[in-house]
Design a protein around this nucleic acid. Structure first.
Length: 231
DNA sequence: TAGGCCATCTGGTCCT
DNA sequence: AGGACCAGATGGCCTA
């Protein structure tokens, strides 16, 4: 069956964010109008099989266990399908919302190009891995936990220190550039090119061996990231 | 125009 | 039983 609509009507213009679907069944009525069975109709068509043996229906009073007409069965099926479709649509919207949230905490690209779903996931994977590497390699240099890094990684240290409450690196287009600029005078903790890969147990292998970054990602990261050795 | 990406529908399976 | 999850199919939009 062909989709009833080609584009999501619940996607916010501009931001591209999704919002919760309104009461679904009513919003997806086909042009001709689909009559969803009322509760009463549903009840009327409910599961009970008619008693085959005459007079042996003990569970229900006479007249209640009548067989559903094909029409009613079809209505029930259609109603269930519509409900399932709406649930599925909401589920996918939630998934897309989570993906959007993930995009927001990833470094923004200068041209503000929106990453595709797969790119977002791959980039996030690489990004997390690179940050983890940065922390791991920086730790011995400062002789303490990564949270105590002071002025080692430059402006990005603020980002590392602030934890969950940190401003999103993708929140402003310039944040990533400033924190990762190779020309930054405080950028003293460059990652060594020959550093060994972390164990697979801890890091699930080097991202580049699993997910090759897109050209867009690798270009950007190679030009502006302190993690370029890992791309 | 082909190919990539996406939203949606759909039926099957798993889980509560 | 009903909902969540999943994967395949389909068709529209966009871009190189």
């Amino acid at each position: 069956m062909a989709p009833q609509s080609d584009r999501c009507p619940y996607k916010e213009q501009g931001s591209g964010k999704y919002f919760q679907c309104p009461t679904p069944a009513s919003t997806l009525m086909p042009p001709g109008g689909l009559s969803v069975p009322s509760e009463e109709e549903m009840e009327e068509g409910e599961e009970e099989e008619p008693s085959t043996a005459r007079g042996e229906c003990k569970r229900r009073p006479r007249g209640r266990g009548k067989a559903r007409s094909p029409k009613v069965v079809q209505k029930i099926k259609k109603s269930r399908r519509i409900k399932a479709n709406n649930r599925e649509r909401n589920r996918m919207h939630n998934l897309n919302g989570a993906l959007d949230a993930l995009r927001e905490v990833l470094p923004a690209f200068p041209e503000d190009a929106k990453l595709t779903k797969i790119e977002t996931l791959r980039f996030a994977h690489n990004y997390i891995w690179a940050l983890t590497e940065a922390l791991r390699l920086a730790e011995p240099l400062v002789g303490g936990p990564a949270g105590e890094l002071v002025g080692c990684l430059g402006p990005e240290q603020q980002y590392l220190d602030s934890g969950l409450s940190s401003p999103s690196p993708g929140a402003s287009g310039s944040s990533w550039n400033s924190f990762s600029s190779p020309s930054s005078s405080s950028y003293t903790c460059t990652l060594s090119p020959g550093s060994p890969a972390p164990s697979e147990d801890m890091y699930f292998g080097q991202p580049e061996n699993i997910y090759a970054p897109s050209k867009q990602q690798s270009d950007f990261l190679q030009n502006s990231s302190p993690f370029h050795e890992f791309i």
